[in-house]
């Protein structure tokens, strides 16, 4: 991991209006992402974890400006994406790609694999002729471990893992620097997950890619990430290097999350203490006052319920948003 910042996220906000009443007035907003800040270093894999509704997927999309953020700033290689013209944004997107959770829904069922992978090449004018496109598609298919003779097949003829390889090849087509992997392995079986994870790691090392790896599987995130951020109700709760976050979590939510993950080791599991959280996730349309985690936090005090804690550096390169971290 270098010290060069590739993506800088400052106070990013993404609110979705809630409409109701007679004239569809905006009566509130789902604050899916509500002010998160972090840097992604060139060459690193930043893991983003949290439970459903925490805003991790929205954050990934807002960073790529697939949604226009409600507030805050995302800069890629020093350029503020919000200030880019539509044409400029399109050109920058070449360098920022995404791999989706459901490899089937994200592939056009009427297109052949070769066309799916070749399309971004044409859209961005990266190839000049049909033979050149064919060569590049061949190269990409080999890179992700797809049999090149399958070029003329349709997505439905492939298994889930192979479809995810097609999705990866498509993302790689434009030679991006940065890829957002949004739950890229969640829909796959355990034995196939490892294949895809190994492929992603290998490509990162070979091509010098930077990943934002969004997932709910904390074990897998620890495995692949250099640093990990934990989100809860649209806010970043903790951000640290993988080892620091998993070995010395500072935020009670991180601790609860980690203790909830069962480890495939029966004698160890019998000894482990669970830190069970009470109740359910509050609605992101109406987050609790003060610290958002205060309604479920076993350590919460009156201070937590009144004052929202600052996201601060509690140790070197270890940030947490907790009064007691």
């Amino acid at each position: 991991m270098s010290e060069e910042v590739l993506v800088q996220v400052k106070d990013l906000k993404m609110h979705f209006p809630i409409r109701a009443g007679l004239f569809n007035r905006t009566v509130g907003a789902v604050k899916a992402v509500d002010g998160i800040s972090f840097d992604i270093m060139k060459g690193e894999t930043l893991g983003l974890v949290g439970e459903s509704g925490c805003g991790k997927t929205t954050a990934g999309r807002a960073i790529l400006h697939l949604y226009r953020p409600t507030g805050g700033e995302v800069s890629f290689k020093g350029t503020d994406l919000a200030k880019e013209s539509p044409e400029g944004l399109r050109r920058t997107r070449r360098h920022m790609q995404m791999i989706f959770q459901d490899p089937y829904a994200s592939l056009n069922p009427q297109m052949r694999v070769g066309e799916i992978i070749g399309r971004p090449l044409r859209v961005h004018g990266l190839v000049k002729s049909a033979p050149e496109e064919k060569d590049r598609v061949t190269e990409l298919m080999q890179q992700v471990g797809l049999n090149v003779s399958y070029r003329d097949r349709f997505p439905h003829e492939f298994s889930g893992g192979q479809r995810q390889r097609i999705g990866i090849a498509r993302a790689l087509a434009t030679s991006p620097d940065f890829i957002v992997c949004d739950e890229a392995i969640s829909a796959l079986d355990v034995s196939i997950q490892a294949q895809i994870i190994n492929l992603l790691e290998q490509l990162r090392d070979e091509l010098g890619l930077t990943y934002l790896f969004i997932a709910h599987d904390l074990s897998m995130v620890r495995y692949i990430s250099t640093r990990v951020g934990v989100m809860y109700l649209g806010k970043m709760m903790e951000l640290a290097s993988s080892d620091a976050l998993y070995e010395e979590p500072r935020h009670p939510y991180t601790r609860a999350l980690l203790s909830a993950i069962p480890i495939p080791d029966p004698p160890l599991e019998r000894q482990r203490q669970r830190m069970l959280l009470e109740g359910d996730l509050p609605s992101p349309a109406n987050p609790p006052k003060g610290c958002r985690f205060s309604t479920r936090c076993p350590m919460a005090t009156d201070l937590c319920r009144a004052v929202e804690p600052e996201f601060r550096e509690v140790a070197t390169r270890h940030w947490a948003a907790c009064h007691f971290a």
């Binding site: 490892a194 620890r222 998993y246 993950i261």
Partner: peptide, 9 residues
């Protein structure tokens, strides 16, 4: 063997 462990240091 294909599973990463949460407690793998």
């Amino acid at each position: 063997n294909s599973l990463p462990r949460l407690d793998a240091k």
